[in-house]
Simulated scan of single mutants.
Amino acid sequence: MVYYQKMTPEGYQEIKDEIARLKKDRPRRIKILQEARSMGDLSENSEYTTAKMELGHLQSRLRYLDKQLRYSEIIQKDESGTIDLGSNVKLLFEGDDDAEEYRIVGRMEADLAKGKISFDSPLGQALMKQKAGATVTVQAPAGSYDVKIIAVN
């Protein structure tokens, strides 16, 4: 059974863009490795060791990203007004006076600093399939709390 990773079209494109950047950088890293190899004794050549390691990391990252694309399921935003992958939500947390905005994304795209929360995080799970005006209880590891959904777009 193959497990497909859910993601937004934007998240899919971000991975494609990173792959393109890495592939563009690969010839430069290969050239650095070749130059370091030509410096002589490889057993005491730190430039060679570093260049080889950096190229290996690049190749490993490319394989990882390729698998992310291969096993991804792109989810289109639900236009019914309910929260789903790709929805932008405005939330009011219990005890706060200021509303906060987030985007519901796939696991690999989540980045709280950029306002992107995963659909399968405790908050994401509580919000899924809800509509504006609802108040949901989030069951988080540190305890439960209520969140009011102000808007969904």
Rank of each mutant, 00 (worst) to 15 (best):
L92P: 00
S38C: 04
G56S: 08
E35V: 11
L69F: 01
R37A: 15
E47C: 08
E100I: 07
G56K: 04
G106M: 01
H57T: 05
V105L: 05
D78C: 06
I83S: 01
D97Y: 10
Y64K: 07
V105I: 03
G86P: 06
I75L: 05
S87K: 11
S80M: 03
F93T: 01
S46F: 14
E109S: 02
I104S: 02
Y64M: 13
S72Y: 02
R103V: 10
E100M: 06
S60E: 12
L69Q: 01
K77H: 08
T82E: 13
A110T: 09
G86V: 00
L62T: 01
R103D: 01
E35R: 12
L92E: 00
E109M: 09
A51W: 03
D111W: 07
R63W: 08
L69C: 06
S87D: 11
M53D: 01
L85I: 13
E47G: 05
E44C: 13
Y48M: 12
A36E: 13
N88Y: 09
E35L: 15
Q59S: 15
S80A: 05
H57V: 08
M53C: 05
E47M: 11
D78P: 06
L85S: 03
Q59E: 15
G40Y: 04
G81M: 09
L92W: 03
T82S: 14
L91G: 00
N45R: 13
Y71K: 03
A110L: 00
T82F: 15
E35Q: 14
L85P: 06
M53T: 06
K77Y: 07
L91Q: 00
D96V: 11
Y64V: 10
L85E: 02
M108A: 13
T82L: 15
S46Q: 11
L58Q: 03
R37V: 15
E94P: 09
I75T: 03
M108Q: 11
E109V: 06
K77W: 04
K90Q: 07
L58V: 03
Q59A: 14
Y102R: 02
E79V: 08
D41R: 09
D78K: 06
S72C: 11
E109G: 13
R37G: 10
T49F: 15
V105C: 02
E94L: 03
S38T: 10
R63K: 09
E100H: 03
I83V: 12
L65P: 08
G95N: 10
E73N: 10
S87V: 07
E109K: 01
K90D: 02
S80T: 09
G95E: 03
I104M: 10
L85M: 11
S80D: 06
A36M: 14
D111L: 04
L58D: 04
R103W: 03
N88K: 08
L112C: 07
R103L: 05
D41Q: 15
L85T: 06
D96Y: 13
K90L: 12
R37M: 15
G40E: 12
Q34G: 11
H57W: 09
N88W: 05
K52D: 15
L58S: 04
Y64T: 07
N45G: 14
L55R: 06
K67G: 12
T82V: 14
S43R: 12
G81R: 03
S46Y: 13
K77T: 04
K77S: 02
L65H: 07
D41E: 14
L42G: 05
I83D: 01
K67C: 11
R37C: 04
